[in-house]
């Protein structure tokens, strides 16, 4: 749902347009703007409020979500509630070149 009040500060954490990069989990990407997000911006025309129900649904089906800010998996609704104000992507995207940077580690 588009936020019509452009004067109101927008919290990207509550927007559903972002994902994280699997190799750079500390970087948040706005899929809509194709831009990295460093801080929540004000008055974003693309803002779509994150669908809380959707997150709960994904958590219930997949069994886990991942909080990008804490670098921690989330397994339960209680945990999810604690991370409510943080970046929790619904999907992870696959980066074709990520494997080139990874080290042999075992």
């Amino acid at each position: 749902m588009r936020n019509l009040d452009l004067e109101k500060p927008i919290n990207c954490c509550e927007c559903s347009h972002y994902s994280i990069h699997p190799s750079y989990p500390y970087l948040v990407i706005c899929l809509m703007k194709d831009q990295l997000i460093s801080q929540p911006r004000e008055g974003c025309e693309d803002y779509v409020e994150k669908n809380w129900k959707k997150l709960v649904e994904v958590l219930s089906e997949k069994g886990f979500l991942y909080c990008v800010e804490c670098n921690k998996p989330i397994y339960t609704i209680e945990e999810l509630t604690k991370h409510k104000k943080e970046f929790i992507p619904i999907e992870f995207f696959h980066d074709d070149v990520a494997s080139e940077e990874a080290l042999a580690a075992d």
């Binding site: 994280i20 699997p22 989990p25 997949k62 069994g63 886990f64 991942y66 990008v68 670098n71 921690k72 998996p73 397994y75 992870f92």
Partner: peptide
């Protein structure tokens, strides 16, 4: 701390 890649299917197994 679980050091699997974020989004890894292993998290589902663990859950």
């Amino acid at each position: 701390w679980v050091d699997w890649c974020p989004g890894c299917g292993d998290f589902g197994i663990l859950a």
